[in-house]
Design a protein around this nucleic acid. Structure first.
Lengths: 92, 92
DNA sequence: AAAACATATCTATGTTTCTCGATATGTAAA
DNA sequence: TTTACATATCGAGAAACATAGATATGTTTT
């Protein structure tokens, strides 16, 4: 999962949404993360590719999706990400 | 590089050679790591595959090779491995 | 110097991953 | 209740990776 440059970048971007994405129009915070379109623009890959990536990261429990109207927002699952890093650091 | 199960396993095995490999015949320590043949036996993959893996990990600076007679021993490059883990923990 | 042995490299094939365009689905606006 | 929009899913081709067998290289033993 974390063997892909773009997916890792996305995780990093979502660490500080205010610094990496423009403000959303319908909501004035990043509490639920960032919408797919913004992530797509930033990554420069096709809509389907990004959607697939985000979906796979959600399946891996690295991201948490929230639907707001027609938009889907994705945010990091800090707990799982930290657990992964800790385990890796311990075992590797 | 660390996206491959076998390669990650090898790194883990080399963390504690005494526990994971039989003693070498020509030398009585693991100071320079473990010879290719033992790693191959443990991994259960072909000689060429393991040799290729070890070589690629050496190129990535994760392993340090030492030649003793006709054997090549590989050990972990702790410095680089730790730096990688620290950077990942900081950035991810 | 030849034979034996450990490892490295080459070549090839099957499998997985990346990536896209096309299409489907779900939601909101007209 | 169509139409428009955001995202998801499907199907396919190209690229990268995994892996093995054959062969080459380097080292030791005979």
């Amino acid at each position: 999962m974390l063997s892909n440059k773009t997916r890792v970048e996305i995780l990093k971007w979502l660490k500080k949404p205010e610094e990496n994405f423009p403000p959303h129009q319908d909501i004035d915070h990043f509490d639920d993360g960032v919408c797919v379109g913004y992530i797509q623009d930033k990554a420069g890959l096709s809509q389907s590719t990004i959607s697939t990536y985000l979906n796979s990261m959600q399946n891996a429990d690295l991201l948490i999706p929230t639907r707001h109207g027609k938009w889907t927002y994705y945010k990091r699952n800090e707990k799982v990400i930290n657990e992964y890093l800790e385990r890796l650091t311990k075992e590797l």
